[in-house]
């Protein structure tokens, strides 16, 4: 096992290197300019813009810039953001809590809802409950988050005025009222994300259950005289949850990537919002940092998922 992990980690290094070169090249070749906002302003002459470009190092070819970026990266230096002129790492650290709070909570809720629904749907296949769950999860999976987000906002915030539109990131929880507000402002963005994530997880859990239900060991368990609940919970669910756990583990880096559209819509200052605004303003150092962190997490959680397979499934051996 240890050997396997070491091997995986060694392979990860060239993978990450390749990923970083690819992202950097794509960003460098993509059109856009961090100074585009000023292009039309006669008060900012071309010479100033060129001077700022030089200051940012944008006058150099992309491979020179990549080399500089990579060598400072190895020293733990992430560079500074073009738009806020401050260290990238500070900006990223500032964003992580909100993303984990909103996206993480919705992921947790989605798992807690999706697994029981998936199990019941499979056990009571083709009943009204199953049909309804299937119908809703198709709808949830098919609706894009900008649509559900705007509709929820229109219905629950603008029409009923139950929840706020604007997510306040400076809210300090001092008393019950501010605590209530903190919960209130989280409801809509979390709801949007839960709808989407629950939909796919439910389907996955259901099909995994359906794969296991007709197998021989289930019949054996029933033949032993175990009651239905025991058969399902102790035998079928445990076996069917293995692939779902992998899916959940692989989805965790996605939490760190934030929810681009939902965060932007509700003004949650998470990593997803940071990524999209940085791409829009061609803020290469920030985009690089975010995509690189994301790549590292994907590699790490892939290894974790592999290990978990070994732990849960006695048939899998890594030697």
């Amino acid at each position: 096992m240890t050997q396997y992990i070491i091997r995986k980690i060694l392979v990860a290094f060239p993978t990450l290197l390749l990923i970083s070169v690819l992202i950097f090249a794509v960003l460098a070749l993509a059109p856009g300019d961090p100074l585009a906002q000023f292009a039309l302003n006669p008060a900012i002459p071309a010479s100033t813009r060129n001077r700022i470009r030089e200051q940012f190092g944008l006058d150099k070819p992309w491979y020179v810039r990549y080399y500089k970026w990579a060598s400072s990266m190895t020293q733990g230096e992430w560079g500074y953001s073009f738009s806020s002129k401050s260290p990238v790492i500070n900006i990223v650290m500032q964003r992580i809590p909100q993303t984990l709070q909103v996206v993480g909570i919705s992921y947790l809720i989605a798992i807690l809802i999706a697994i029981p629904i998936g199990v019941i749907s499979a056990v009571k296949q083709y009943t009204f409950f199953d049909q309804l769950a299937t119908f809703l999860s198709f709808i949830g999976g098919a609706l894009p988050s900008f649509f559900t987000g705007l509709s929820f906002m229109l219905i629950f915030a603008i029409h009923f005025k139950w929840f706020p539109i604007v997510y306040s990131t400076t809210l300090e929880i001092k008393d019950f009222a501010t605590f209530k507000h903190a919960i209130n402002q989280m409801v809509l963005p979390v709801l949007v994300l839960v709808v989407q994530q629950t939909a796919s997880l439910t389907r996955f859990m259901r099909s995994s259950m359906l794969d296991n239900l007709p197998l021989d060991y289930v019949r054996t368990a029933r033949a032993k005289g175990l009651n239905d609940t025991a058969v399902i919970v102790r035998h079928v669910v445990v076996n069917s949850i293995i692939p779902v756990i992998t899916l959940v583990a692989l989805g965790i880096p996605g939490i760190f990537a934030g929810a681009i559209i939902t965060e932007n819509l509700f003004r949650v200052n998470g990593l997803g919002q940071l990524l999209v605004t940085s791409i829009q303003s061609s803020d290469t150092p920030v985009v690089m940092a975010l995509s690189f962190i994301f790549s590292i997490l994907v590699v790490i959680f892939n290894v974790i998922a592999d290990i978990m397979y070994g732990v849960f499934d006695p048939r899998v051996k890594y030697n």
Partner: peptide, 30 residues
């Protein structure tokens, strides 16, 4: 696996009241 991100958040210092709400929120928001 699920709590790991939350723990990271605590380690990440500048999390104004992130953890207590996270814990209290989950069941309430469900």
């Amino acid at each position: 696996a699920l709590l790991l991100p939350l723990l990271v958040a605590c380690g990440g210092a500048a999390a104004p009241a992130a953890e207590p709400t996270a814990a209290a929120e989950a069941p309430a928001a469900e």
